[in-house]
Design a protein around this nucleic acid. Sequence first.
DNA 1: CTCGATGCAAATGCTTTGCAGAAAA
DNA 2: TTTTCTGCAAAGCATTTGCATCGAG
Lengths: 155, 155
Amino acid sequence: MTPSQHTATVDGLQARLAAYMDKKGLRSTAQRRTVTDVFFRSTGHLSIEDLLVQVRGLDPKVGYATVYRTLKLLKECGLAYERHFGDGISRYEVAHEDEHHDHLICLECSAIVEFENDEIERIQDQIAKSHGYVLKRHKLELYGICSTCRKAGSE
Amino acid sequence: MTPSQHTATVDGLQARLAAYMDKKGLRSTAQRRTVTDVFFRSTGHLSIEDLLVQVRGLDPKVGYATVYRTLKLLKECGLAYERHFGDGISRYEVAHEDEHHDHLICLECSAIVEFENDEIERIQDQIAKSHGYVLKRHKLELYGICSTCRKAGSE
DNA sequence: CTCGATGCAAATGCTTTGCAGAAAA
DNA sequence: TTTTCTGCAAAGCATTTGCATCGAG
């Protein structure tokens, strides 16, 4: 499934968020709607900066703090994943239901490929179980050199 | 291989460091020797703070910056791995030659189990190759609940 | 003597927080 | 009206850097 095929589920994500906010007595504001809309329609791994730029395109008065606070909220209700790829920046990714994947990252150009592998998942479960753990989640990142950079490097 | 069995290789690590520093024209100072000695003898995943406490036990005048700078040096020459486990803190681990492992972390008590699995490694190589990448390294972390915390939680 | 290393304090960069005013419910 | 939210600026933290001094080679 490619990221663009998720577009149709933005409403579903908004609905899940609405349910969570309702349960917690949180309020729906224009800024929050802007931030979550931009985020839910996004693809890939966005920094706060990335989001803020897009959000300000729609509403120039929105501040950093609001974006941070909104993404914290999305993390809490399981609609966003926070990722750290080595530089000191947090990046966020939409947590589409039923889907999750790991990352293959180019050490030179930072190109990111997403992948999924059931066999690895199965082995992870076994490993956790063998140590007496119940597995909740995992983080798998592969770092290498992509074919483009290898060709560029050999010139 | 358990961490304590690496004790005999501290000299080897110091030798590798010495070779690197020689090649780069870097100087061997008392502070650097103290920091690297503490670090090479260590087990587990130490923060800068952890290291500084131990180092100051031997030489109270050593400053933060020196520890940071020394660990940066160790990262550069491949003798230390830097890890991030979610909180904003960098932790460092000795990069023993020929050995590497992944981590299984309890979400409640932060207990860390280290493990190694050749089959996962093999699949990772395949995945990278199938996307045109040459794999250099990886990061695999499993997060779950350990048996102790499960028992405590069900009381 | 030279140039790298150190220690301190100041600076940096990302993220969080306090607070007064704005706006949902 | 009550309570949450927002925007701004200030505060927090981990980490890095500038600089005068120290010390290895």
